[in-house]
Design a protein around this nucleic acid. Structure first.
Lengths: 236, 236
DNA sequence: ACGACGACTTAACACAGGTTGGCGCACGTT
DNA sequence: AACGTGCGCCAACCTGTGTTAAGTCGTCGT
């Protein structure tokens, strides 16, 4: 069974069997479990390795001195925590597990070795980086100019696409293992208001959320409500 | 006189004279002027070149169907509009001139040629990319979890650092050639509220803003007010 | 079956920030 | 000098979202 990373990368470019094997190998070594609400990487650290999420959800977040938390990105299975490690950058944020998570530790030169002589691998890693920064931009636009209900609708559309890409969406229903306070910190709101907004989406027949699974009842309606345009994810 | 791009890059790594010359050369060809409020790159285009800002301010923005505009990044002299062109990505946003702007058009392979055989150049371009994504993260956190006055204070601190880095800050005063509606779209607020907030910062003696120039009267106070931690800009 | 715990839900109230609209200044044009 | 225009500034009012504080529900361990 291939890991979700390979499945995602194949969406970017056509991979030869050896390319696939190399990428798959990255996710098979140094597998580690992290409990929910534990940090995978602290806010002040100088990480020497990167992590590949194999299972569970994590997030990139910034914690303010007074306790406020801003989640600046959600990390799903198949996502690479920090493709830049080999530049030995200092962390300006933390990476935390939202659910219990399994990750593979990857040393910087393993990534370098994987790329060397394999243009397709390099290409798909680049494309992945492009998609990630496009996602960042979309989040800034979302928090800056979308209303509460638009934001939530937009996020659900985004997650649907991202999870489908790694084979984790079952048609129109997807896992949604995070709490409402988590969603609030990701969308720049309070959990109470997330709850209100969720109710509104439910009443208008766009989604259903039960026992940590989200079902999209009306994808077109949801996309319209969230001003969602799938183009930005660069799925060539 | 060196262009601002070179000055910024030198902050990342030590450059040999030939490295400097190569970077400087990038800003000397195909110089073009763009009038204020004109697009440098449209929202639907497939850009074949990148642009280096030599003078004036521009922004990366997304326009919503109903007219709302979200500015997701400010581009200052020395900033590269899109270092990724060589991956032929589709634009998911536009780049617009906020003031009148002079740019240099750069072809994808010119960048490639500049890097080839010059590890220092490659290194500083990487570092620049890291700093840019760190900036994106900080903006998400800002719009998501900072109050109006914190956001504005934080932005002013950021601009002070970024402009100083390219030699455009005159001690504690810096050019601020954008209108209040522009600031509003960058910070996810209305121009009226920007105005209120500006007044508050002025009254508390933190800044003064007159004839398109901002003077920071109390940098420590401003940093504290905006929860500003300069570490994220990765100025090694 | 019971209690405990965590997460969800709701209601009442408060307030930060949005909306609308008007005034004035600086500057460029004629 | 008169006029137009773009921008800063301000006040009155309004509303979306935050705050606080109770519940309620589901799950798990005993």
């Amino acid at each position: 069974m291939e890991n979700p990373f390979v499945r995602k990368m194949e969406r970017h470019v056509r991979l030869a069997p050896e390319d696939r094997a190399v990428l798959d190998g990255l996710g098979r070594q140094h597998v580690r479990h992290v409990a929910a609400r534990q940090d995978i990487e602290g806010q002040q650290s100088d990480p020497s390795h990167t992590h590949l999420i194999l299972d569970g959800w994590a997030c990139r977040y910034k914690q303010f001195p007074d306790g406020r938390r801003a989640i600046v990105a959600l990390l799903l299975p198949g996502d690479l925590c920090d493709p830049f490690v080999f530049r030995r950058a200092h962390m300006d944020h933390a990476i935390g597990a939202l659910t219990s998570v399994t990750v593979a530790r990857i040393a910087p030169d393993q990534l370098g070795d994987a790329i060397r002589g394999r243009p397709a691998v390099e290409e798909c890693l680049w494309r992945e980086m492009l998609a990630t920064t496009a996602l960042h931009r979309e989040w800034i636009a979302s928090v800056g100019r979308r209303s509460a209900i638009e934001r939530l609708a937009h996020l659900f559309c985004e997650l649907h696409l991202r999870l489908a890409r790694v084979g984790l969406a079952d048609g129109m229903t997807l896992p949604m293992p995070v709490t409402q306070p988590d969603l609030a910190d990701a969308l720049g709101q309070t959990s109470v208001h997330i709850n209100r907004t969720l109710k509104e989406l439910r009443i208008s027949g766009l989604v259903a959320l039960r026992s940590r699974r989200l079902t999209i009842r009306d994808l077109d309606g949801l996309m319209e409500r969230g001003l969602f345009d799938p183009a930005y994810l660069q799925l060539s």
